[in-house]
C-alpha cells in the first residue's frame, strides 16, 4: 500500500479512536448550558473550572483518591516482593513439580475475578478485613501476582546464567545472587510489573465495589456511584472526576510504555 495513504488512514483511525477520551476532557471544561444542549458542541466556547471545584468541595473525591493511592501502592509493594522471589525461584532453581507450577501460574492469571469474588468476599469477611485496605490489597494480589511471575520469569530467563555461576564460585549465596545480580539486571522487567500493578489496581472495579464502602470507596467505585445511583447524572462533575481518574494511569503508562509493551507481548505471544 502507498506510504502516504497508509499514514493518512492511520491518522484518521487515530482521531476516531481517541475521540471519546478527548470528548471527556473537553466536556469537563464546559459550562452546564453547553453540556446539556441538544446540538453537540465539541470544543467548549467558554472554559470553566466549576466542575473541578465541585469535585474538591461540594462532592469531594479527595478521600477516594487517597484510598486508591494507598491500595495501589500497597498492592505494588507486596506484589513486588512475592513476584521477584517467585520468578527468581522458577527461573534459577531445579526442583520437582516446576513445570506444573509454571502452568498453575498461567492458569491462575486466566482465572476471572467474577469466579473468585464471592468466596473471596466471604473469606476476607472471616478475616475481619471487609472495608479495610488490606482486604482489598489481598483481592488485587490474586491477579497481579500470577501475571507478574509469568512476565518476570520470562525476563529473568534472558539474564545469562553464567553471571550467577561466576558469583557462586566467588562465594555468593542465593540471597546475594538474588539481590545483587538478578534484581538489578531485571530492572526493565521489574519496572513493567510495577506499572502493570499500579495501573490495574488503580483501575479495578469489581473487588473494590464489593469490599469497600462508605468513606473507604476507591475512586472508580465513587465515580460508579455518581453514574449508577442518581436518576439524572451530573455529567460535569462526573467528567471532571473521570479526568482525574485517568490522569495518573496515562502519565505512568507514557513513562514506562516501552518496557510495558515488551513485557506484554512477551506474555501474549510466547510463554
Amino acid at each position: 500500500m502507498n506510504k502516504v495513504l497508509r499514514f493518512v488512514v492511520l491518522i484518521i483511525l487515530c482521531l476516531i479512536i481517541i475521540f471519546p477520551i478527548v470528548n471527556i476532557i473537553f466536556t469537563s471544561f464546559k459550562p452546564s448550558e453547553e453540556i446539556f444542549q441538544a446540538k453537540y458542541q465539541f470544543i467548549p466556547t467558554e472554559f470553566t473550572l466549576q466542575w473541578y471545584e465541585e469535585v474538591f468541595t461540594i462532592t469531594p473525591i479527595t478521600g477516594n483518591i487517597f484510598n486508591s493511592i494507598i491500595v495501589a501502592i500497597g498492592t505494588m509493594i507486596i506484589n513486588l516482593f512475592a513476584v521477584t522471589t517467585a520468578a527468581f525461584s522458577l527461573s534459577r532453581f531445579k526442583y520437582p513439580l516446576k513445570n506444573a507450577l509454571s502452568k498453575i501460574t498461567i492458569f491462575t492469571y486466566m482465572f476471572p475475578s467474577i469466579l473468585l469474588v464471592l468466596p473471596l468476599y466471604l473469606i476476607i469477611g472471616n478475616l475481619g478485613l471487609i472495608n479495610k485496605y488490606p482486604g482489598l490489597i489481598i483481592a488485587h494480589l490474586t491477579f497481579t501476582v500470577p501475571y507478574g511471575i509469568w512476565l518476570l520469569k520470562g525476563y529473568m530467563d534472558t539474564v545469562p546464567k553464567s553471571i550467577d555461576e561466576c558469583a557462586t564460585i566467588d562465594g555468593a549465596g542465593y540471597w546475594k545472587i538474588f539481590t545483587a545480580i538478578i534484581i538489578p539486571l531485571s530492572g526493565p522487567g521489574i519496572a513493567s510489573i510495577m506499572t502493570y500493578t499500579l495501573i490495574t489496581s488503580w483501575n479495578e472495579y469489581l473487588y473494590s465495589s464489593v469490599i469497600m464502602s462508605g468513606r473507604n470507596k476507591t475512586l472508580p467505585v465513587k465515580i460508579a456511584e455518581f453514574i449508577m445511583e442518581t436518576s439524572e447524572i451530573r455529567w460535569g462533575t462526573v467528567m471532571a472526576a473521570a479526568c482525574i481518574a485517568m490522569l495518573p494511569v496515562t502519565i505512568i503508562f507514557q513513562f514506562l510504555q516501552k518496557d510495558f509493551i515488551k513485557g506484554l507481548t512477551a506474555g501474549a505471544v510466547k510463554e
Binding site: 470528548n23 471527556i24 446539556f36 495501573i199 473521570a242
Partner: peptide, 26 residues
C-alpha cells in the same frame, strides 16, 4: 501509544465516556 490509550483507562471512565456519547439527548 494513542491506539493503546483505550486499553489503560479505568473501565468506569470508558463506560462513562460512551454513555455520554450515546446519550439520547446530549
Amino acid at each position: 501509544s494513542i491506539f493503546l490509550l483505550p486499553w489503560i483507562l479505568p473501565t468506569v471512565v470508558t463506560a462513562l465516556a460512551w454513555r455520554m456519547m450515546l446519550h439520547e439527548r446530549w
